[in-house]
C-alpha cells in the first residue's frame, strides 16, 4: 500500500475580474499519483505549472480562498484538514526552496527546533547540526548570514528534527553550485534509504533523474505521466506521453529542440486533453474530453494514443 495516495486532486481559486464578476482559476486538476515508503518521486514540470501548490495542498497550508477537491490518503487514512494539522511538522515535513522561508529576525537554532519544546529538543538539534557538519557558531547565526550550502543543510535539518515519514521538498536546488546540489540530493537519498517517502518538486530534470525512483511529469496543473526513472533514456521512446517526450528531447544533452507554444493558463484550459493544442498526434477525440488516466507499462499516462 502506498504511503501517500493523491487521487483526482483539484485546487482552484476564485478570482475577481471586473466588478463582482469572478472566474474560477484552476491551478491543479484531476491530479493523481502515489508514493511508497522509502521511495523518491520527482514531480517535474516547467515553472508556473502549480507544483508548489500541490505541496501546499498536501500539507493543508493553501491560502484561505482556495477550493480543494479530490482525496489524499496518508498511511491508509484520509488526510483531512484536522489530520493535516496534527501531522504537519511531525510526520509530514516540508523543505522549502530558499533561506527566504526562514524568519529573518530569528536565530537559526530556534527555527530548527521550531515548535518543539523541552530539553530533548536542544539535544536533538545539536546532534543534527553535528551530523550535517554545522558548527556550533552557526546556531546563533541569522538566516542572512548563512552561505548557500549552510542554508540548505539548515532547511533539511528542519525536516530531520521532526523525524518525518513523508518529506516534500519544493525546488530544493535552485541556483546552487554543483557540490551543494549533490549534497542536498544525497541527503534526500539518505532519507529514502531510511524508509522515508520523499516528494521532490523540481524543474531540474537532471537532478530529478539522479535521485528519483519515479518521475511524475506535471503539465498545466496535472500529472500527464508517471514513469520509472529508467524510461528516461535514448530519445525518449520508452516514455508514454508526448509532452514527456518533448520535455526530454528539449534537454541540451539530447536534441535541444523545444516545441512551439506554451502551457495553457488556469483560467483558459482546453476542454479536452490539455496538451492537444501543442501535440502533433491530436485527433478529434483528444479535443473532446480529458483523457482518463491509465496504467501502461508499469507507469501511468493520460493520453489515448500512448502505447
Amino acid at each position: 500500500m502506498p504511503l501517500v495516495e493523491v487521487d483526482d486532486l483539484s485546487v482552484s481559486f476564485k478570482q475577481y475580474t471586473k466588478g463582482f464578476k469572478h472566474k474560477e482559476v484552476k491551478v491543479i486538476h484531476n491530479l493523481s499519483f502515489s508514493i511508497n515508503a522509502g521511495e523518491i518521486v520527482a514531480v517535474v514540470g516547467s515553472s508556473g505549472s502549480g507544483k508548489s501548490l500541490l505541496a501546499h495542498a498536501i500539507l493543508g497550508i493553501l491560502p484561505r480562498n482556495a477550493n480543494v477537491s479530490g482525496t489524499i490518503h496518508y498511511d491508509g487514512k484520509e488526510l483531512t484538514p484536522s489530520l493535516q494539522e496534527k501531522l504537519r511538522g511531525k510526520e509530514l515535513a516540508f523543505v522549502p526552496q530558499s533561506v527566504n522561508f526562514l524568519n529573518p529576525l530569528m536565530e537559526v537554532e530556534k527555527q530548527v527546533r521550531g515548535a518543539l519544546k523541552g530539553k530533548d529538543s536542544f539535544k536533538t538539534q545539536k546532534e543534527i547540526f553535528e551530523k550535517y557538519n554545522l558548527s556550533t557558531d552557526v546556531e546563533k547565526l541569522y538566516p542572512f548570514q548563512l552561505s548557500g550550502g549552510m542554508a540548505r543543510r539548515i532547511l533539511v535539518s528542519t525536516a530531520v528534527i521532526n523525524k518525518a515519514k513523508f518529506i516534500i521538498a519544493d525546488e530544493p536546488t535552485p541556483g546552487l553550485d554543483q557540490t551543494v546540489v549533490k549534497e542536498a540530493l544525497s541527503s534526500f537519498k539518505a532519507f529514502a534509504d531510511n524508509g522515508t517517502a520523499v516528494m521532490f518538486i523540481t524543474h531540474d530534470i537532471q537532478s530529478a533523474l539522479s535521485v528519483a525512483d519515479k518521475i511524475a511529469v506535471f503539465y498545466a496543473g496535472t500529472t500527464v505521466e508517471v514513469a520509472p526513472v529508467e524510461d528516461f533514456t535514448g530519445s525518449g521512446e520508452r516514455l508514454r506521453h508526448p509532452y514527456s517526450k518533448a520535455l526530454w528531447r528539449a534537454l541540451p544533452q539530447n536534441e535541444f529542440r523545444p516545441i512551439p507554444g506554451s502551457q495553457p493558463k488556469g483560467d483558459e484550459l482546453p476542454r479536452g486533453c490539455l496538451f492537444a493544442p501543442r501535440c502533433d498526434m491530436t485527433t478529434t477525440e483528444c479535443l473532446e474530453h480529458l483523457p482518463e488516466k491509465r496504467v501502461l507499462r508499469n507507469g501511468m499516462v493520460r493520453c489515448i494514443h500512448a502505447t
Partner: peptide
C-alpha cells in the same frame, strides 16, 4: 510571507505562531 508559510508547514499555529514570527 514565505517564512510564516514555512512555520505553518512545520505545525506552528495560533497565538504562538503570531508571537514567534
Amino acid at each position: 510571507s514565505d517564512y510564516v508559510l514555512f512555520a505553518r508547514a512545520r505545525g506552528e499555529k495560533g497565538f504562538s505562531l503570531i508571537w514567534r514570527h
